[in-house]
Design a protein around this nucleic acid. Structure first.
Lengths: 195, 195
DNA sequence: CTCTTGTTTGACAAAATTGTTAAACAAAAG
DNA sequence: CTTTTGTTTAACAATTTTGTCAAACAAGAG
């Protein structure tokens, strides 16, 4: 009954997470996952019963972790402008590690039950939109549909990360150069959002 | 030797394109493609030899079509600002139809030979960056690294389209409402890019 | 040391997906 | 009408991927 905890279960999850979200190998085989983790393939079934269950578990945990991180930033008792600045830093750092995560969420949105998990976020988003409207009234940011403000912010942050493999090729840059470009980007996004 | 052209080959390609890029079913089975097209599965092999070949063909054609469209816009002999305005309109229209196309390009970039196909675009991009620099010198647009200008532009256009399923849920909107929001967005992007 | 039990492994079975082939079918040519 | 040839179909085979099971293994309990 007492678990010996060889760390194998966590190793498999971590490896799967890396393959899925860092390398973009969304449809990695159980064999590929096992190989990457350096364990026997059968262990995937032993610990997670099926590939789908491993899949869902990794997805949900990554999802919750991200949501928690963003919520913490937005709940901090600091002025709006400062909160957004912090958000940009945290978001770029977090997504730099797993650039394929959000793409994955989108592509999964067709078949699965992600929709229900997301509907729980609607009220949260509504509250955020209200907060943005208030800031517009105060004159902190340019007046527009607050939904556009949110879309602008996340567009400017996420898109360059999601498409980083493409950008590196088109701009003929290596990893260091791109990391540097993204570092500059923090300030630029902030200035674009708060002109 | 004379082909009878029952339209089946084109039907399969069109169906595959729709499944891949409009519905996001990137890994649709040959059976699923055939069912969606209303034809026998074997015809996929008859016309395209293998699923991979169908895959590559649909991908390349969609890619070429997009590149040609964007090139035409950027080669038009009109002032820069007007060109960008046209680009926004064309891009939003084109991507509204196949929101998953660019996501697909990214997720494929690991394993495949997409890289070589993309490297041919590097010079084109360099020329565009030069054009942007000149406009900055002229004062038409705010001075910054021209790569950021390009990233900003495409971020603001592409991200809301790529993530449209998610946005609809979070903002609690139906298709019409979202289409309306994207229509407003044209003007907003233009103003954000040219403050 | 022995027993218990969680862990790991290899062999096997099942399922899903893809590819091949021969025959049936249908439209155009003669 | 008959032949030709491109098209379509169903049955079969091959491959890939997933899931199951019994036995081997190893660490802690007694």
């Amino acid at each position: 009954m007492t678990t010996r905890d060889t760390g194998t279960e966590q190793l498999i999850k971590d490896t799967a997470k890396h393959l899925f979200f860092a390398e973009g190998k969304i449809h990695a085989t159980t064999q590929e996952i096992a190989d990457a983790a350096g364990v026997n393939r059968t262990l995937v079934n032993y610990y997670f019963k099926s590939r789908d269950i491993l899949f869902d578990q990794v997805f949900n945990e990554a999802q919750e972790s991200l949501v928690t991180t963003l919520d913490e930033v937005m709940d901090a008792p600091v002025p709006f402008k400062q909160k957004i600045e912090h958000l940009i830093t945290v978001f770029l750092k977090e997504f730099g590690q797993f650039p394929y995560r959000e793409v994955f969420i989108i592509t999964q949105m067709n078949n699965n039950n992600v929709i229900n998990a997301k509907k729980a976020r609607v009220k949260r988003v509504e509250a955020l939109l209200t907060e943005i409207s208030i800031e517009m009234d105060k004159g902190t940011i340019k007046t527009m549909d607050p939904r556009h403000f949110l879309m602008n912010l996340f567009s400017l942050m996420a898109y360059p990360l999601v498409t980083s493999p493409l950008q590196k090729i088109l701009f003929n840059m290596d990893d260091d150069g791109y990391a540097q470009l993204m570092e500059q980007r923090k300030q630029l996004i902030f200035e674009t959002i708060f002109p």
